[in-house]
Amino acid sequence: MPNSSSITKSYVYSKINSVRWKPSASTFSKPEIFISGSWDNEDNKVCVWRCASEGDPQLLQEISHAGDVSDITYISRDTAAVASSNGSVSLYKHADDTNKNLSLSQCFKHAHHFQSGSQAPCTSVASDGCLIATVGEDARLLLLSPGQHEPHRIIDSGSDSSEYAVTFIKTNEVLTGSLQGHLRLWDIRKAGNIPTVTMITTDQEWIRDVSCHPSQQHVVAAAGEAGALTLWDMRNTTQPFTSISAHSAPVLEARFHRNSPDHIFTCGLDGQLVHWDVSYHSARSLLEGTGGGGLVTSWLHPSVARGDVTTTALINAGPLPLNSVDVQGDVAVAASDNEALFVLRNLVMC
């Protein structure tokens, strides 16, 4: 049956901490190449894989990486920025995957460090296509631009507790999430180290990942310690829109689907991959003609605030954590501390 969803699990000899699809040339082509980074091994590696339409992913090439890989993001079609626990940020280039040409094109060594000078792990990296934003346990937000050696800009966040998450909202706005559970929005064109908006949750629980709706930038999902997905409407920052729990342990990553933003995928320390789906609401509002058609995002539908979201656990890899997930088209790839790489094909999405 070509249309049934399937899961393959393959063991890859190292604990993978981050997986990301390489952006494909067009929206309609099947996702094929992805990159992975390992952690907690004696020698950590960044690997490039090919994922055919069936079977296990094939390792195309690999390169050694200093320190644990904590996060990866693509800044262009062929360059990936890799955050490392030794505080450095490396750019790896692999243009043509038929040849072995994965190479380190640039490294911002020691970019994150504490005041004493000792290295501070870089925890997250994001990019808007030209600038790279990184945060680390030294609580600084760095803006790096590829090609330059010195950081483009350093924002001292004014706190000293670790920042864990960063994402671009617009080209000039960056959102960060921290150990204390604070979300802060920074205008990178404004001088000074004062955030535009600070959003606070009451429980001081750490936030590990923030993800922004790909088309409606005022919708932001944050995930963290409580095992819940917290949705924020950035037009009202005094309190979160809603917070829904589906994991039994802290969530490590939350990602909106790029082309079908009614779907979010999260993975967590409980080893689960959860698919959050609100397409039901958008279909209904379209039918009933309420809510201004497609203008209102389904994530801010009143019934979502009451917790009316379809959640499905796609993988349960417990008891060990599922570290990372990325979805492109109808194929998801996820990696666990059990040294397993999962590929889910033909995900049901509308």
Binding site: W39, D68, P121, T123, E137, L179, W206, E225, A249, L269
Partner: peptide, 16 residues
């Protein structure tokens, strides 16, 4: 404990 991330993992295992 090399990083916060690892610390959180150890804490989670201990809590379970």
């Amino acid at each position: 404990l090399t990083s916060d991330a690892k610390a959180h993992k150890v804490i989670n295992m201990a809590e379970q």
